[in-house]
Design a protein around this nucleic acid. Structure first.
Lengths: 109, 109
DNA sequence: TGAACATATGAACGATTGCTCACATGTTCA
DNA sequence: TGAACATGTGAGCAATCGTTCATATGTTCA
């Protein structure tokens, strides 16, 4: 690799903040439990207890993950009586999911 | 949530294999070192030693990550003399990066 | 009000991750 | 061939992660 290309490449790399934000976003999606939660919440608004039962997880585990997802604004919540309904809060997420699926499906062939 | 909606939702959820593949893909992208490596290799074909110097990482750390990225076919390699050149091997990755960046940038506002 | 239900949360524990270190493998060239 | 360079890799370690358990908080309704 020539010294000139090396310098030019270095100048074009993503800045530190973008790298960190990008990795953080992908990291949240990089867990099967959170993928399943987001998949469900992208399709319907569901209270925590139903979500736990639907996915066969403990209420506590779901609640912990929802806190993380909410802190990253990937889901939002709304209280109705003693239930708290969660739903996906980001149209980009659906796009990322679909593009991720495309990638995964291409791998199969 | 009505019992009917619950059953219908459960039937529409992603299958287990897709969930696993999706999470695995995102997990690989969920690390700043790998994001930086992929960012560089999406722009140019670079030998390992240059990559390490470019990113300020040890040769060993880069090599370990490249093995992972190659096992998932996100990068490919080519030997030329004693150098081994790596480059991104997936057009979907660039799309995922861009969509991830969109997401990240929207968060700022 | 108090029992029952729904959710949140902190501590703790085992599992996984990403790095370093030491060294093996592979290539060039004098 | 052997020294120098480039890369790969296994072991080990500190840090992070995801879960469970116990318990706190918040809401409903008889």
């Amino acid at each position: 690799m020539s010294n000139r290309s090396y310098v030019q490449l270095k100048a074009r790399l993503l800045d530190e903040a973008s790298v960190a934000a990008l990795a953080e976003t992908f990291k949240v999606l990089g867990d099967t439990t959170r993928v399943r939660i987001l998949d469900a919440l992208a399709r319907a608004e569901v209270p925590v207890c139903d979500l736990a039962q639907l996915l066969g997880l403990s209420q506590s585990a779901v609640s912990h993950q929802l806190r993380l997802l909410r802190s990253m604004r990937l889901v939002k919540s709304r209280r109705d009586g003693r239930h708290i309904y969660y739903v996906a809060d980001d149209h980009h997420i659906v796009g990322l999911f679909e593009q991720g699926l495309e990638h995964v499906q291409e791998r199969r062939s």
